[in-house]
Computed example of a mutant assay.
Amino acid sequence: MTSPIVQSSDPVTLVGGGDLSPEDISQALSVAPCLVAADGGARAVIAEGHEPRAVIGDFDSLQPEDRANLPQDVLFPIREQDSTDFDKALRNIQAPLVLGVGFLGGRIDHQLAVFNALVRHADRPCLLLGAHEVIFHAPQRLELSVEPGSIVSLFPLASVTGRSHGLEWPIDGLQLAPDGRVGTSNRALGPIVLEMDTPGLLVLVPRVELNTVIRAFGISQTDSAERLAAELWPARAK
Rank of each mutant, 00 (worst) to 15 (best):
M1L: 12
T13R: 01
G16T: 09
G16L: 11
G18H: 03
D19L: 13
E23N: 13
E23R: 13
E23Y: 06
D24S: 09
I25Q: 02
A28I: 06
L29P: 05
S30N: 10
P33E: 08
A38M: 10
G40D: 01
I46W: 06
E48Q: 15
H50W: 13
E51C: 09
A54E: 06
I56G: 00
G57L: 02
G57S: 05
D58A: 02
D58G: 03
S61E: 09
L62W: 00
L62C: 01
E65S: 13
R67W: 01
A68V: 05
F76K: 02
P77L: 02
F86V: 11
K88F: 10
Q94N: 14
P96C: 09
L99V: 14
G100D: 09
G102D: 09
G102V: 10
L104I: 09
L104R: 13
I108S: 12
D109F: 13
H110Y: 11
H110F: 12
V119K: 06
R120K: 15
H121W: 11
A122G: 15
D123N: 15
D123P: 06
C126S: 14
L129M: 15
E133G: 06
E133M: 10
I135H: 06
H137K: 11
Q140P: 03
L142I: 11
L144Q: 03
S145I: 02
V146Q: 01
E147F: 08
P148N: 11
P148Y: 13
P148V: 10
G149E: 08
V152L: 12
F155C: 11
T161C: 14
T161K: 14
G162I: 01
G162Y: 00
R163N: 14
R163V: 02
L167H: 00
E168I: 05
G180I: 11
G180C: 10
R181C: 09
V182C: 14
V182H: 02
V182N: 03
G183F: 04
G183Y: 04
S185Q: 13
L189R: 15
G190D: 13
P191M: 10
I192D: 01
I192C: 02
E195L: 08
D197L: 08
T198I: 00
P199I: 02
L201I: 07
V205P: 01
P206D: 07
V208H: 13
V208F: 06
T212E: 07
V213D: 00
A216S: 15
G218H: 09
T222A: 13
L228K: 12
A230R: 15
A230T: 14
R236H: 14
